[in-house]
């Protein structure tokens, strides 16, 4: 009973945390664009959170650089379970265009487990919207 209630609450208002692990900022501004009046993702109960401890879904952009790796791991640890990770952007999925750069480790899944990948360079807000919805449906 409590489990069901918990799941329902989780589904109706998932809070998200965004982290740029080393990308070009393009996906980040499209992500932030989801909160503007044209797309308005907040009408689904989705709120952007400042602290990992309040978040349910971690949205990561960009490839993982050597310097952000420990921070990304710590952010992931700090999110309370059940936690979900959505990767936005081609470079976050595989390393993309930066794959052969000396300071890049590769995609986000090299460091933390990923639930959903969304390729695109950069992803359109509609695509991110759809990905978040898909993730919520799976909760």
């Amino acid at each position: 009973m409590i489990q069901r209630l918990f799941r329902l609450a989780h589904k109706k208002s998932p809070w998200i945390l965004t982290y740029n692990a080393g990308g070009c900022n393009g996906c980040d501004i499209e992500l932030l664009g989801l909160f503007n009046p044209r797309y308005d993702i907040e009408r689904f109960g989705i709120l952007q959170q400042a602290s990992p401890r309040h978040a349910d879904i971690l949205i990561c952009t960009g490839p993982v650089t050597i310097k952000t790796r420990p921070y990304l791991e710590r952010i992931y640890e700090q999110i309370p379970s059940p936690k979900h990770v959505l990767v936005v952007g081609s470079c976050g999925c595989t390393g993309g265009i930066f794959k052969n750069a000396y300071n890049v480790l590769g995609g986000i899944d090299q460091v933390i487990p990923v639930d959903l990948y969304l390729p695109g360079c950069p992803c359109r807000p509609e695509a991110i919207f759809n990905a978040v919805q898909t993730l919520i449906d799976r909760l």
Binding site: G62, P63, K67, Y71, F98, N100, A101, Y102, N103, V104
Partner: peptide, 14 residues
């Protein structure tokens, strides 16, 4: 700083 340093200047040379 340097969290998003990817090494683009070097990569361009290849």
């Amino acid at each position: 700083i340097g969290f998003v340093h990817r090494g683009i200047e070097k990569l361009v040379e290849s």
